[in-house]
């Protein structure tokens, strides 16, 4: 079927002219809850745990490092290039490989490692959702491809709900090739460290 033939039949069915602009579409009502950080935290803890996720809350880089080392338990992990991981000193921990610039090296590292360490774009408190945005710094195979996903994120990134995310800057989705919204996982274990 040619594109032009389809568009012609659509316009004929709708009684529209070529290049005719539509009226303004009806506006969706975005729900603004105005929750405080503590309210968002409380709701996120409940919703995330209900989906089988493990939430850890720390207040310093040292605590984050100690927790990651405990989860690694001497094993190997691959880490993304998220700036937060470097700031917290996670990339310097023993057993953590990072700084991948070659696809083959990344694939090989992911074959042997058990844990993938990454950060995320934001969290949605109401649904307990983790929003991941894949970029050169945040590869898909590290964030979601390993048996244990360890996601480290600042609590400032905790939004109320999807409506707030879409209301902030809906065009931001185009800044990455893919955005994933994860609500628990049956195939892998998800640990989230809130800093």
């Amino acid at each position: 079927m040619s594109r032009d033939a389809l568009f012609e039949s659509l316009r004929l069915a709708l009684g529209r002219k070529k290049f005719q602009k539509p009226s303004t579409p009806p506006e969706p009502l975005l729900l603004n809850r105005n929750w405080t950080l503590e309210q968002r935290l409380e709701r996120f803890r409940e919703a995330f745990a209900a989906q089988g996720g493990m939430l850890h809350e720390v207040s310093s880089a040292e605590q984050a490092q100690a927790l990651v080392a405990e989860l690694l338990a001497g094993g190997e992990a691959v880490a993304s290039g998220a700036p937060l991981l470097a700031e917290l000193g996670i990339l310097a921990l023993a057993g953590v490989q990072s700084g991948f610039t070659d696809a083959e090296l990344l694939r090989n590292a992911c074959r042997t490692a058990r844990i993938g360490i990454s950060s995320c774009h934001c969290l949605l408190a109401e649904s307990g959702t983790v929003v991941l945005r894949f970029t050169p710094e945040e590869p898909r195979s590290i964030a979601l491809g390993l048996p244990l996903s360890l996601i480290i994120v600042s609590r400032r990134k905790l939004l109320t709900n999807l409506d707030e995310l879409l209301g902030l800057n809906p065009r931001s989705f185009e800044s990455a090739s893919e955005t994933a919204m994860v609500n628990g996982s049956e195939s892998s274990e998800i640990h989230l460290i809130l800093v």
């Binding site: 991948f100 610039t101 070659d102 696809a103 990344l106 694939r107 894949f134 970029t135 050169p136 590869p139 898909r140 195979s141 989705f173 185009e174 990455a176 090739s177 893919e178 955005t179 994933a180």
Partner: peptide, 13 residues
């Protein structure tokens, strides 16, 4: 949400 194939610098996708 897929907004295209992998972009320059991406190692997977």
């Amino acid at each position: 949400f897929l907004t295209g194939p992998r972009r320059a610098g991406e190692l997977d996708g």
